[in-house]
């Protein structure tokens, strides 16, 4: 199916092109909605739609004022600061405990491995609305609701499964004779950890950290429940913006967020290649 053989019959030829068209249509469905917001974010008028001026490519129909609004308005700036602050600390927390736990989980000596794993992965599986509601109830009791710390802890909890999964996946191909070799050459466990283990699992750790970061950075349900206006993040602003008054500022923000996702995607791809190279696989 990947390519058309020269001896293919008429029916096969027709099916081949039909199939390719179907796939192309699905790819358009996947990707077009993301790119449609790019031109719309440069709309001169406060609508979510293409104006006649825009369609006739009249420069007067376009403007960057929504970007200007995003960069100058205080509430958006606060949201950006909050988003980064919360995401960075949540990532640091979940990456540290997640990586350490993954080292333990990969050990063949770990008792009740699959049961423990099921619990550690559960924040990813339990619907966000339930996690958010439970955290709202519980954090209110212990005074963590409406605090930055509360939101950071909540996001760190949501991010840990990703770290655990990516780091254990890296450790699957880990050659344990390397640590024994280090030990036989006189290295103590700490030195072995930092000089041998860390460089090898680093791609997994970083991609887990990126997952944790994006989980926190995109997360809105938990912030809505556990946080208050003080902890307002970018997704929170977008959510309330869409509900209350729709302004193309949201589209401008969305465009910038897509650019950030592209950056993250590139980084992950580079990491994946490095990881496969280190493990002796051909880069795919």
């Amino acid at each position: 199916m990947s390519s058309l053989q020269p001896y293919a019959g008429k029916l096969e030829r027709t099916w081949f092109y039909t199939y390719r068209t179907i796939c192309a249509a699905i790819f358009v469905f996947l990707i077009a909605p993301i790119f449609v917001i790019f031109p719309l974010s440069f709309n001169e008028l406060p609508y979510f739609t293409f104006t006649p001026e825009m369609l006739s490519l009249d420069p007067a129909g376009y403007s960057t004022k929504w970007y200007a609004e995003f960069f100058t308005e205080q509430s958006w700036r606060d949201a950006v600061a909050n988003s980064f602050f919360i995401a960075i600390f949540a990532t640091l927390m979940s990456t540290t405990v997640g990586t350490v736990a993954a080292l333990g989980l990969s050990s063949p000596a770990m008792p009740f491995r699959s049961a423990v794993m099921a619990i550690l992965i559960s924040p990813m599986i339990v619907p966000l609305i339930i996690s958010a509601a439970g955290m709202f109830f519980f954090y209110s009791r212990i005074g963590l609701a409406s605090t930055h710390l509360g939101v950071i802890l909540a996001h760190a909890a949501l991010g840990t499964p990703f770290v655990v999964i990516t780091v254990t996946a890296t450790l699957v191909g880990f050659d344990h004779s390397l640590t024994r070799a280090a030990a036989s050459l006189g290295s103590n466990p700490t030195r072995t950890f930092f000089k041998v283990i860390v460089p090898l699992i680093l791609p997994g750790v970083i991609s887990g950290a990126l997952f944790a970061f994006i989980t926190s950075f995109d997360e809105v349900v938990v912030v809505l429940f556990v946080g208050s206006v003080e902890q307002r993040t970018i997704p929170w602003k977008m959510f309330s913006g869409i509900r209350e008054e729709i302004r193309p500022t949201i589209l401008a923000v969305a465009t910038l967020l897509v650019l950030i996702s592209m950056l993250l995607l590139t980084m992950l791809e580079l990491l994946r290649r490095r990881n496969e190279r280190l493990r002796g696989l051909s880069p795919g």
Binding site: G104, S107, M110, L120, I130, G134
Partner: peptide, 28 residues
Amino acid sequence: RSRLRAVLLVLPLFAFLVITFVLPIFDM
């Protein structure tokens, strides 16, 4: 010893999730 080491490595995350995630579910 190796079993103990594995458990001790997993313990911080386990305790962290119990407080930040499992207890809230039980509270609910």
